[in-house]
Design a protein around this nucleic acid. Structure first.
Length: 869
DNA sequence: ATAGGGTTAG
């Protein structure tokens, strides 16, 4: 874009040439005006603000020629700066410096190929006596830097330009603004515009404003654009098409639908709609995922006889593929070809990828063939995509053809990429052994080449690279074939490949997962020897293994080594370690481990301390636990709700419920919000210490605080109420629970059934017993036994037998070693003594469901084998 | 290839 340095408005790339007359902003008199080529005055009279449009540009074809002396100077300078950097301090150059003028500088800048040299020349010129850059030389330089994307230098240049106080024509300022805008330097463009205006270096006209808006429209700064638009109107410049276009664009960028519509209507009402406007809208719609709306626009465009341009179609096709609507994309693709546009590789690429993603591989292949027929050479990336998709579908035959084509068209470096894709595809398709065979053939093992005949017909051998090995090694790892992975790894090392960090990490991690940590350690040594630095992941893999093994001393040694490397041990591993130590009663060891971590400079998270605190409580170390809690508080930890819960639970279990109540108050003071669990713990504490009223009070408090009781809350209280001899209240609570939609689980049923039995209400209990079984919850044996025993003791043999039958068909009768055994036997005795149930008991013995008991003889048993009616 | 961790009822 920035090629005329502000003298003419070159908008052809921004706006369709058909709709734009570049002169529409320029009063006609300007074209007649000429300005002397040797104009050196740094200040143009104000009346000349439009002269830049007519100033000839010496290097363009129709430009006025520079006299021959100047031409020589340009040529010499260009030659010296291009080819003879050593001559830059020579006398010759000093002489040339005296002949410098702005036109020469512009010419030289235009002729220099590299932005770096141009920049050097530009700086050199600035230092020459009697020479000053003007706005055109600055713009020439700005244009070069902008094209070279040297944004930092461009910014400095723009500031220098302002600081030099060189006057600018509105066009020149517009040009500069567009240079900045094209590099996304929106704020800078905005700033420079104001500076220039403020310093009186230029009076912006509507073109300048349009340039500024154009620059701003690359952002989403709606406010900025609106502000400038008002400013422009206040300066007497009404908006034209080139004003509204950037306004539309910024609203599009910011996703302001309403505003977009509003501006669009303004543009339409003034008859300014063109393809460019549509393109802006369509790109936005496509970005917003509104491809259908974009399609509607296309139809409207066709109605308005505005031709679709290639870019718009491309954008839409990309948009449809992005939404996985490949059919629609293909439809547009056809349209595009009918309009005579020739699709390029990127467009084929996106469609083929879209089809691959939809697993429409036949269509993808056809399109690929079409592309080749139309004379477009495929690149390695598209072949690679096809190979990996075909592999994924197990279509090895097509893969083979593509690979053969690749062999003809690609060099060895690209070809190895295809082979790696193939290896990867095989591995992903679960064919890691096949991949391994292919790899061996690549390594030169001709003896197995038969086995990969269906994959490749190797004409030229492609040696595997590090990636090839990595793919197959990782494949083995993922298939659990760790030893194959290791063997291949060492093969790779022997072949001189060093591997990479990822490969080492994967292998070490797999070894550690397989509890082969010593080998993992060996590999770590090898890794370091090869010059790779272990990462956090490497160390934590090994650390995790030590933690799982509860190997405290090696774990702490590793923590030390990790600290030296600046690697943090992962909480999931050390919390696992302390948890397991606690489970095994080694709470002191767990506590010591955390202390050691602190000594090594790592502060364990509160979670780990919570585990240890709970551990102390579980081994009746109440004082140790509470001391630990206070210690960590003193060390600056802020216990969270779970840490408090553990503390309260420990105190409650030690029957120190009022202390637990104090802890709850402490929580509230400190602003730690109690959870349902907190209240449940306290409720249970009160229940277990026979303070059922306190427990119910606690329930109402939790409801007050909008903590919904859970099935745990209800179970706890139902158990407590029954133990307090209040079965009716327990039943009321049960109904309340069900009414609230809280469905009872096995523990809740157990609590109620057992509670009712304890309250002498086995007849009610058995109703819930049946309800529970209907819900396919399996009662624990002690529930059966409690019922049987209760019925037996009350002489209700029929019900007792019914439950007994139920029990023995659902689970084994307790063994003689079981603590419940004597109880069961005594119940059986009672049932066999009762005439109503004795024969059924014998039947159960015959069926082998219950053991033979004392006074039921074998003879008796035989007598019941014959069925009686 | 990177956090799932710790607490309550029969």
């Amino acid at each position: 874009m920035a090629s005329k340095l502000g003298r003419t408005i070159n908008t052809s790339k921004l706006f369709p040439p058909k709709t734009l007359n570049p002169c529409h902003l320029i009063p006609s008199f300007v074209h007649k005006k000429k300005i002397s080529i040797n104009e050196h005055s740094p200040f143009f009279p104000e009346s000349n603000i439009y002269t830049e449009f007519s100033r000839p540009y010496h290097s363009s074809e129709d430009a006025v020629s520079i006299h021959s002396d100047s031409t020589t100077v340009v040529e010499e300078l260009t030659a010296i700066f291009t080819n003879q950097p050593l001559l830059r301090t020579s006398e010759e150059l000093t002489t040339l410096g005296t002949k410098l003028n702005t036109e020469t500088v512009e010419s030289v800048l235009k002729g220099l190929k590299s932005w770096r040299i141009a920049y050097e020349f530009f700086s050199w010129a600035a230092d020459q006596d009697g020479y000053r850059h003007n706005c055109y030389t600055y713009n020439a330089m700005a244009s070069i830097l902008s094209r070279a994307k040297q944004t930092a230098k461009l910014k400095i240049l723009a500031r220098d330009m302002v600081n030099s106080r060189c006057p600018m024509t509105p066009g020149a300022l517009g040009f500069l603004i567009r240079c900045l805008g094209s590099q996304g330097l929106v704020d800078e463009a905005n700033y420079i515009f104001d500076q220039v205006k403020m310093m009186g270096l230029c009076f912006p006209n509507s073109y300048t404003y349009n340039c500024l808006l154009e620059a701003l429209s690359k952002s989403t700064s709606v406010d900025l654009v609106e502000k400038r638009l008002r400013e422009m109107q206040n300066s007497g410049f009404g908006p034209d098409k080139f004003t509204l276009t950037p306004v539309l664009r910024v609203y599009c960028n910011a996703g302001k639908f309403e505003k977009v519509l509003d501006v669009f209507n303004q543009i339409r009402d003034r008859g300014w709609i063109d393809g460019h406007i549509f393109t802006i809208l369509m790109i936005s719609f496509s970005k917003w995922g509104e491809v259908d709306k974009a399609m509607e626009l296309i139809e409207r465009m066709e109605d308005l006889n505005i031709s679709l341009n290639e870019k718009t179609l491309c954008v839409l096709i990309h948009g449809f593929v992005r939404e996985s609507r490949v059919e629609k994309a293909l439809h547009l693709f056809d349209k595009m070809r009918k309009l005579g546009f020739k699709p390029d590789l990127p467009l084929y690429d996106v469609l083929i990828r879209g089809l691959c993603q939809k697993k429409e591989l036949r269509k993808a292949l056809n399109l690929y063939m079409e592309m080749k027929d139309s004379g477009i050479l495929p690149d390695v990336s598209i072949i690679s995509k096809l190979i990996s998709s075909l592999c994924g579908e197990g279509d090895l035959a097509s893969t083979k053809i593509l690979l053969e084509e690749g062999e003809q068209a690609l060099d060895a470096k690209a070809l190895i990429l295809l082979y790696n894709t193939l290896l990867d595809g095989l591995v992903n398709h679960g064919l890691v052994d096949k991949a391994y065979l292919l790899l061996r053939v690549m390594m030169g093992a001709e003896s197995v080449s038969e086995a990969v005949n269906d994959l490749v017909s190797i004409k030229k051998i492609v040696s595997p690279d590090c990636t090839s090995f990595s793919i197959v090694i990782d494949g083995f790892c993922n298939m659990g074939q760790l030893d194959s992975a290791l063997r291949l790894f060492w093969d790779m090392i022997r072949m001189g490949w060093k591997g990479n960090v990822l490969l080492y990490n994967n292998l070490i991690n797999e070894l550690c997962n397989a509890n082969r940590v010593d080998e993992g350690f060996e590999l770590l040594k090898e890794m370091k020897k090869s010059g790779f630095k272990p990462t956090q992941f490497t160390h934590n893999s090994i650390f995790g293994c030590f933690c799982r093994r509860e190997d405290v001393s090696r774990a702490i040694d590793l923590v030390r080594e990790m600290r030296e490397n600046g690697h943090e041990p992962w909480i999931k591993y050390y919390s696992l370690l302390v948890k397991q130590l606690c489970i095994h009663g080694k709470v002191i060891e767990a506590s010591d481990f955390l202390n050691n971590m602190v000594q090594e400079g790592f502060l364990p998270e509160i979670i780990a301390y919570s585990i240890v605190m709970d551990g102390f409580f579980k081994i009746q170390g109440v004082d140790k636990a509470t001391k630990l809690f206070r210690d960590i508080c003193g060390r600056g930890y802020c216990p969270d709700v779970i840490a408090y819960n553990i503390l309260m639970n420990g105190l409650c279990k030690a029957r120190r419920v009022s202390e637990a109540q104090d802890v709850l108050n402490e929580m509230l003071e400190k602003g730690v919000v109690p959870s349902v669990v907190t209240y449940n713990i306290l409720i249970d504490g009160w229940c277990k210490t026979h303070e059922i009223d306190q427990a119910i009070l606690c329930l109402s408090k939790m409801v007050e605080k909008a903590r919904e009781p859970t099935v745990v809350t209800y179970s706890t209280l139902i158990d407590g109420l029954c133990n307090a001899g209040r079965p009716n209240d327990a039943l009321i609570l049960w109904n309340e629970m069900v009414k609230k939609g809280c469905s009872p689980n096995k523990i809740a049923y157990t609590a109620l059934i057992h509670g009712l039995i304890k309250c002498n209400k086995a007849d009610i209990a058995v109703v819930f017993f049946h309800e529970m079984k209907e819900k396919e919850m399996k009662p624990d044996r002690f529930v059966y036994l409690a019922l049987i025993n209760d019925f037996v003791s009350k002489g209700n043999s029929v019900l007792a037998l019914e439950v007994l039958k139920d029990m023995v068909t659902n689970e084994k009768f307790p063994s003689p070693l079981d603590k419940d055994y004597p109880l069961c036997i005594s119940a059986l005795h009672k049932l066999s003594e009762d005439v109503v149930t004795s024969s059924d008991v014998k039947n159960l013995i015959v069926q082998g469901l219950i053991p033979t008991i004392g006074n039921v003889s074998d003879m008796d048993v035989k007598s019941v084998v014959e069925p009686r009616d």
